[in-house]
Amino acid sequence: MSDSSLNYERVERQMASADIESTGAEVHGILCGLICAGREDAQARWFAELFTEMQATDLLVRECANSLKVLHDETLAAVTGPGLGFTPFLPDEEVPIKQRAQAVADWCQGFLYGIGVAGLSADHDFSTETQDALSSLSEITRMDLDHLDGGEEDEESLTEIAEFIWVAAMLVHAEMVADETERS
């Protein structure tokens, strides 16, 4: 499901080695929340959430940070560049559906957290459409995974949800870019 040059499972192993307890999807969601909210210091803020200064000399942490920097650079280029934007960093389609669905929920949780870390409060003056999209992201974080059986209908639903989270993120980004343009 991801267009990144990075392998999802490898990044998760690196994160575990660096004592980051979040999933790759959640970590990417945080980054996307920061970028879409318009934080120019998104990478620095993201790294501050993930790493402590004491970890800076640890080889495994540096290896993880290097991979996450690649993820940041690819995501930033995709969000701010021409084209349709980024693809959420999620496990490959060979992974069981419950794990992929959990990753989608984790991504949404991370995105909402990233928006909060970026300094956008719950009472930010988003359009009704964007407020509804953010509310839907919140609902996705509570998705019931126990009833997924991996059938074609579940696969289609998960694909639609993954596409929706992209749309929701790009709505936030478009509004924040419009807000910045108006303030300039």
Rank of each mutant, 00 (worst) to 15 (best):
D3F: 13
S4N: 08
S5G: 08
E9V: 15
E9F: 11
Q14M: 15
D19L: 13
I20F: 04
E21S: 12
T23I: 03
H28C: 13
L31C: 11
L34E: 02
L34A: 14
L34M: 01
W46Y: 05
F47M: 00
L50Y: 08
L50H: 01
F51Y: 03
T52E: 13
Q55G: 11
Q55C: 09
T57L: 10
L59I: 14
L60M: 11
V61E: 01
L68I: 08
V70M: 05
H72V: 06
D73M: 09
T75N: 14
L76R: 15
L76E: 13
A78F: 06
P82S: 12
P82I: 14
G83F: 12
G85L: 08
T87C: 12
E93G: 06
E94P: 00
V95C: 04
V95A: 03
P96R: 03
K98Y: 01
Q99N: 11
R100T: 07
A101Y: 01
Q102F: 04
A103K: 01
A103Q: 01
A105Q: 02
G110Q: 05
A118Y: 05
G119D: 03
G119K: 02
L120F: 11
A122G: 11
A122P: 01
T128R: 13
D132E: 14
D132M: 09
L134R: 05
S135P: 00
S136L: 07
E139H: 09
I140D: 07
T141N: 02
R142K: 00
D144G: 02
D146V: 02
H147D: 03
H147Y: 03
D149E: 12
G150L: 01
G150Q: 07
G151D: 12
E152T: 13
E155P: 00
E155M: 13
S157I: 07
I165A: 06
W166G: 09
W166T: 12
V167K: 09
V167L: 09
V167T: 08
A168H: 04
L171R: 12
L171A: 07
V172F: 02
H173D: 02
A174R: 06
A174V: 07
E175D: 07
A178T: 14
D179C: 08
R183G: 04
